[in-house]
Measured scan of single mutants.
Amino acid sequence: TTYYDVLGVKPNATQEELKKAYRKLALKYHPDKNPNEGEKFKQISQAYEVLSDAKKRELYDKGGE
């Protein structure tokens, strides 16, 4: 599973699309609303952290993490 899959976006997604997808999923899986989905929330946050940063995203796209 790639970070793009976690957020449900395509690899060519814009920053705005990433932000929108992250917010939607973060609300859905937030531990306050969904106590059993803490791990999913962490995955979503990690994916967004990497993909929202241009340098980290470039490194990730080249095969790094």
Rank of each mutant, 00 (worst) to 15 (best):
Y3S: 01
A21E: 04
H30Y: 05
D61R: 02
P35Q: 08
E58H: 09
A21T: 04
K24Y: 11
N36I: 09
D32V: 11
G63M: 15
K19V: 13
E58G: 06
K20D: 14
K42Y: 13
I44Y: 03
K62C: 10
Y48H: 02
Y29A: 02
T2E: 07
E17R: 03
K56T: 11
A47T: 01
E39K: 08
E16P: 06
Y29E: 02
A21N: 04
L59P: 03
N34W: 07
Q15T: 10
V9N: 00
L51Q: 00
E58R: 06
Y4H: 03
A47G: 01
Y3Q: 02
F41A: 03
V50L: 06
K40C: 10
E49N: 09
E58V: 05
D5A: 07
G64C: 15
K33Y: 15
E49A: 12
E16T: 09
K19P: 00
R23Q: 15
G64W: 15
D61Q: 03
L51I: 03
H30P: 04
P11S: 12
Q15C: 11
D5Y: 04
Q15W: 10
E65C: 14
P31C: 07
E39W: 12
L27V: 12
L7S: 00
V50Q: 04
L18T: 01
K19D: 15
K28H: 09
T2R: 05
V50S: 04
H30A: 09
Q15E: 10
N12Q: 09
N12G: 08
D53V: 04
G63R: 09
A26I: 10
V50W: 06
Y3H: 06
P11F: 11
A13I: 05
L59K: 10
Y29T: 04
A54D: 10
L25I: 04
E37C: 14
L59M: 13
E49Y: 12
T2N: 13
D53S: 06
P35G: 08
Y4D: 00
Y60G: 03
K28F: 09
K55Y: 12
T14Y: 01
K19T: 14
E49K: 09
E16I: 07
E17D: 11
E65M: 15
Y22R: 01
T14R: 05
H30I: 05
Y48W: 10
T2W: 08
S45K: 14
Y48C: 03
L51S: 00
E65Q: 12
A13N: 01
I44L: 07
E58D: 13
T2Y: 10
H30M: 07
T14M: 03
G38L: 15
K20W: 11
V50Y: 06
Q46G: 05
D32S: 14
I44T: 02
A47H: 01
E39G: 09
V6K: 04
K62D: 06
